[in-house]
Each structure stands twice: as C-alpha cells, then as structure tokens.
Design a protein around this nucleic acid. Structure first.
Lengths: 219, 219
DNA sequence: GTCTATAAGCTGATAGAC
DNA sequence: GTCTATCAGCTTATAGAC
C-alpha cells in the first residue's frame, strides 16, 4: 500500500482536461512553489484559458492539494513489500535504483514535494506524522530484523532511509546544479546507470553489504 | 578561498539596518523563494517600514542577489585546504561533520540555496559553471590522487561530493520531514552528533575507509 | 535617514454570454 | 462545458513630508 494523504478536498479525475491541468500545475508548482505559482502560467502550460482552470478546481490551494496527492500515491511503493526473508543487499539495491530512475524520469514531482517540505510542510504536516512516520518505522523494523539475523551491520535504519532519499532525490531537486557542474545540458541514460551504480555500491558498502553483481544491460 | 559569485549588483554592508534586512530577507526568501517572498514580510521580520527596505536595496532582485552572495561566501570553506598529503579518512570526516553542523545551525541559508537550484538556478547558472564547477573538479583531483596513492578505493569523486552535499544538507532542507518522522519538535545536540556519526561512518565505509575514532565529547 | 501615503500594475477569482 | 471581460484586493515601488 502506498502512503496516501488524508485530505477532504481531493477531486476525482473527470476528463482529459482535468489530467492536463494537473500535470501543468505540477510543473508550475514544482518550479515556483504554492505562493510563487501563477494560475495564468498553469493555464498557459495547459493550453487553456484561466477561467477553465477555475472551473475544474475551486481555487489555487485545492489544485495544489490535488497535485500533491497525485504524487504521493506512487512515491515509495518499491520498498513496501520487502520483508525479513528478502536479501537486504538485493532489496536495497532495487530500492535505490528505482528511486534514482524516478528522480531522473519525473523530477518535477520530486521538486514539488521538496518545495513543500522546504517551506515547513504547511500542507503535509499531518501526512508526515500520521502516514509517513508509521511507514518509516515499519520499514525500520525490517532493517532491525536483518541486523538481528546478522545479515547486515548494526546501524540506524531511519537515518539510512534519510540517506537514500537525500542521495537519490538530489538528482531531481538539484538537477540544475548537477548539470552545471558536469557541464552537460541534459540527463542521459549513461548518467542514470552511472549514478545508480555509484549510489547503490557506496551505500551498500557503507552498510557492510556486498553489492549484487550488475550485468552489462544496466537494468 | 571561498567560491564567490560574479554579480554586479551586490552591495557592501553600510550599517546595522543593512545586516538586519539581509538576515530577515534570508529567512523570507528561504521559506517562500524569490517570487513568493513579500517585501512587506521582509520589512516585518526586520522590524522596519517597507519603504526603508527599498532605501537600502534598489529592488527585490538586488536584495535576493545580495543574500545569495552573502551565503555563498562561506559555503564549502571546510574542504578548500585539503591536499594529497592529508589523510582522506580524517579530511572526509571533518568535511562531513562541518557540513552537518552547518545544516543544523543555519538551515535557512541551505534552504534558500536549495530553493534557487530547485527553480533551475536562474540567478546562479553562471556561478554553477564558472565557479562551482572548477572548484568541484579541483577537489575531485585530490580524490584521484588519493586513489592513485592507494589511500582509498577507486570511485567517482564528483558523485561522492554530490552524495556528501545531498546527505548533509538534507537535514536543513527537509527539516520539517525529518522532525515529523522522528516525532520531535526541534533539533538538539544529540541528534547532531547521531547524524554526524552515522553519515561520516557510512560514507567513509562506502569509500573503503576506516572511520577515525570518535571521542565521547562529540566534538 | 526614516516613514506615511499613494500610485501603477498584477493576480486570483467570478459573472455571465455562448 | 468553454471562454471573454472584469472586479476587488494585494504587491512592488516611489514620491515627498519630516
């Protein structure tokens, strides 16, 4: 089950325009935040007149909440089904690679989430304490069981999850800095696999785990 | 030498009000970004009438640039003086702990920087390619020399610097999420040393380095 | 240097024709 | 359902008294 926020104002998709606006709003909110985003700019991105946006969404905040909910619905899915019986090296490697891929392929979603947290999570504080906190603690239990079973060294599972989030989402949130430093204009598949390999290997080694063999297909 | 941006609009401190406004603006810009920040809110934080802010700074953008310049001036100082002759474990450990401390003690600065990058670094793209890129490449050379001297395992130094930045600044930028998940209301010294120990040990181990002994004083 | 008052322009939201 | 026209309020910036 994916972590889901508990809000009352979320609306169900009705037609094509609804989805178009949602996607346009995601881009605009990701770039400028809630306050900085302009309804006119969202309408322009969606290729619709501004009044049309207001027809589908009551106001700016309800549109913002709808976008956040849409993102959260598919956030940390990859790590939900892992249990003690799994091999920690393979589970962590899979999780890290999935998160890196998500950061490269849908950076706007990560950036919008980052923007909300940066501002003190005014619209997600309930979600943090009521949904994400139990999820993290639950996942931390799996790590503890791995440690008790001698499958990995003793370390802090919560801080480890923070490290994985931070390192992988960095490539979405700080894309402008990464590209500027690497002297590139855009991300490519080579960089995805390079980052995936480095991040997985370094973190696994940091946990006293042997990184699983990576085949040449990169997948 | 600290990396410094090359902008023409930066102003020199003139008196107490100048510094007060700069600090107030840092808080406001960190929370709401350039577009979202309100000059009135900055004036309120500074305890001055709004027109007074405009007396010291020509407009919103020049104030924003002045704040950015002020932050950058003291950013990655800790890692400037490291050379091949130093022990990589000690150098990295010192760097990581300094960055963690900075994130906990001056999160607003980190958040403002993050906000600028999140938006595509519109005011810092020159700084990225002309100042920060050479700095990173220069520091990467030190890592390469350590690897050639057999002092640490072969890995990608640039991605390693990204990882250190991401992991340490996470505690400033995502403070609201970290506190929400840990179920705490604010950061304390215990958490600083806990995070410092974990981050340093995990990354150093990930680089095949033996973490230096930490004494009980935590400093 | 400081502050009140106000101008000039922008933004979210809605009314109402089609 | 869609779109043009427009309002009411807010925001930056400045003019001008002190």
């Amino acid at each position: 089950m994916a972590p889901r926020m508990s809000t009352k104002e979320v609306q169900k998709p009705r037609d094509k325009h609804f989805t178009t606006i949602l996607l346009a709003a995601q881009e605009e909110f990701a770039t400028h935040g809630l306050k900085g985003a302009r309804m006119q700019a969202i309408a322009d991105r969606a290729g619709l007149p501004k009044a049309n946006v207001h027809y589908y969404f009551k106001n700016k905040v309800s549109l913002y909440l709808a976008v956040l909910d849409n993102i959260i619905a598919t956030w940390d899915d990859f790590f939900n089904d892992v249990s003690v019986d799994d091999d920690p090296a393979i589970a962590l490697d899979t999780f890290i690679r999935a998160k890196v891929r998500l950061s490269f392929e849908n950076p706007a979603a990560s950036r919008l989430f980052a923007n909300e947290i940066l501002q003190g999570a005014p619209y997600l504080s309930d979600y943090m304490s009521e949904v994400l906190r139990p999820w993290v603690n639950n996942r931390a239990n799996v790590f503890h069981e791995w440690m008790n079973a001698g499958k990995m060294i003793a370390t802090d599972p919560v801080l480890l999850i923070f490290m994985i989030w931070a390192t992988t989402q960095h490539y979405a949130d700080f894309q402008a800095q990464v590209l500027g430093i690497l002297g590139r204009k855009e991300y490519d598949d080579d960089l995805i696999s390079q980052v995936s390999d480095f991040t997985s290997q370094t973190i696994l080694r940091g946990c006293g785990l042997e990184p699983p063999n990576t085949d040449a297909t990169g997948n």
